[in-house]
Amino acid sequence: MAEDVKPTRKNLMEIEDRIEFSERGHDTLEQKRDGLIMEFMDILDQAQEVRSGLESDYREAQRAIDMARAMEGDVAVRGAASALKEHPEISTRANNIMGVVVPQIESTKVQKDLDERGYGVLGTSARIDEAADAYEQLLDSIVLAAEVETAMKKLLDEIEKTKRRVNALEFKLLPELRENQEYIEQKLEEQEREEIFRMKKIKDKKEAEEAEDEAAETHSEETEETVTADD
C-alpha cells in the first residue's frame, strides 16, 4: 500500500491533513457510538419491563379466552369474534434519538366499551366480555412492545453501523495513512541525505579543482619567476 504514493512534500502534507481529519471523525463517531449505547441501555431496561408485562398479559388473556371457550363453546366465541365492528388502529409518529428515527406508535379504539363491540349484549355472556377485555389490554401492551422493540432494532442497527465505521477508521484507514506518512517521511529524509552527500561530493570535487588550479597557477608563477630570475 505504501508504495502507491509518490514521496513528495505535497503528498505528505495532504496525508497529514487526512490523518487529522480522520482522527477527528473517529473521535466524533466514537462519541456517537457511546451515546447510542447509552440510549440503548435505557431502552433495554424499558423493553424488559414491557416484555414481562406483555407475557403476563398474554397468559391472562389466554386464560380468559380458554374460560370463555369452556363455558360458552368455541362456536359462540368465534361468532362473537366475527361480529366485531370497531377495529383498533395505530398511527405512528417519528421520534429522533441521536439521528435515529424511531417510531412513536399511538393506538386508538383498542379499549372498547361493551356496547361498542358489536356482538350484542344479550347473546353473549360475561366470559366473552372478560376475554375481549383481556385481549384489548394485551393489544395495548403489544403496541407498546412494538414501539420499544422497533426502537431497539433501529438503535442496534445504528450502533452496528457506527461501530463498523469506527473500526474501519481505527484499524484500516488510519494505519494505512500513517504507513504512507512514514514512508514519505523516510523517503524524503533519504533524498535529503542523498542531496547532502551529493553536495559534499561536488564541493570536494570543486575544492580539488580549485586546488589544482591554484597549484597550476603557482607553478606557472614559479616558472615565470624563474624566467625573470634568469634574465
Partner: peptide, 9 residues
Amino acid sequence: TGFRLAGVR
C-alpha cells in the same frame, strides 16, 4: 380468535 375478539381485522 382472542385478538379478533378485541377487534383485530
